[in-house]
Design a protein around this nucleic acid. Structure first.
Length: 283
DNA sequence: CCCCAGGTGTCAG
DNA sequence: CTGACACATGGG
């Protein structure tokens, strides 16, 4: 079953979208296509003349939603502040889109991401999927459900080299699978309420909560302040200390699509480096 | 040996 | 409220 999906505005940069550190389970094949899992089904995607092609048993509307193909990127770029570094970042990755990931997968992914670098996050998630995820054919495994993780012992998770994340992943999986924590309510709440609710989970602080708010719940003003974003903020306002203060500053600096802007900056400074060279001032 | 990585929880001021 | 530190692990 194939789909041909045309982005609404601003095109699609597939390599940046799937390789920018918002999702960790996609694999780039030698022919340039990408293989991954959406809603539990194997998917292959590639670009042809600006159109996104998908081999998948997933409905077209779900694919459009996952890749956020109806985001008007030109309008989003137009709302960005006039900032040298941000201009360079957009120029480098024009067409990069925030994804709309499945909620539990996104939460589990960024529980793994705490104080780890991206290659290691990929390794942890691959190990979790291989050990606890459903076999969906072709040697692929989907994400484990909260229920399947909840039945594990902490030592089993430790053996996957999750480190101290084993405990919080297990506790969170048990709270979700038991119904003690209601994931399904989150999409119905406003940004602040959803963020606060997420922060009640073990291992979930403001940064992980913002990743879920941006990459799954679709709050484009959410700014995950990690070590890279913190450097960018403190370069302009060295006095800012708390997470809340830096996130608020980033929102006022970057505008209503601050989450989008943040992702361009994050990917640019992390991959092309050169954070010190330029003058990045808001304008 | 050091430091860092898409941080969080805890504890002392 | 703030800052310091432990926490597991792998890579540079």
């Amino acid at each position: 079953m194939g789909h041909a999906l045309r982005p609404k505005s601003g095109g699609m940069h597939l390599d940046a979208t799937l390789g920018c550190g918002q999702v960790f389970q996609w694999h780039r094949l030698p022919d340039g296509r990408w293989q991954g899992v959406i809603s539990g089904a194997p998917v292959r995607v590639w670009l042809e003349r600006g159109t996104l092609h998908c081999d998948a048993t997933v409905p077209a509307d779900r694919l459009r939603a996952y890749f956020r193909l109806d985001d008007d990127l030109e309008e989003i770029y137009g709302a960005f502040p006039d900032d040298a570094l941000l201009r360079q970042s957009v120029s480098a990755f024009r067409g990069m889109r925030i994804l709309q990931q499945d909620l539990w997968e996104c939460l589990l992914s960024f529980l793994c991401a705490t104080n780890a670098n991206i290659p290691r996050i990929r390794g942890m998630i691959a190990a979790l999927c291989q050990r606890y995820g459903p076999d969906i054919g072709d040697g692929l495994h989907g994400f484990p459900t909260a229920g399947s993780l909840a039945k594990a012992e902490e030592e089993d998770l430790r053996s996957l080299r999750l480190g101290y994340r084993a405990r919080t992943i297990l506790q969170t999986a048990r709270m979700v699978s038991s119904g003690q924590f209601d994931l399904e309510i989150l999409p119905l709440l406003d940004y602040r309420t959803a963020h606060a609710r997420l922060c009640t989970l073990p291992g979930v602080g403001p940064k992980v909560a913002d990743c879920v708010c941006l990459f799954s719940l679709g709050w484009l003003e959410a700014v995950p302040v990690d070590t890279w974003v913190r450097r960018l903020v403190q370069k302009q306002e060295p006095s800012l200390r708390s997470y809340q203060a830096m996130a608020e500053f980033a929102r006022s600096w970057l505008g209503p699509y601050a989450g989008y802007a943040q992702q361009y900056l994050f990917h640019y400074v992390r991959t092309l480096g050169d954070v010190e060279a330029e003058g990045c001032r808001g304008g």
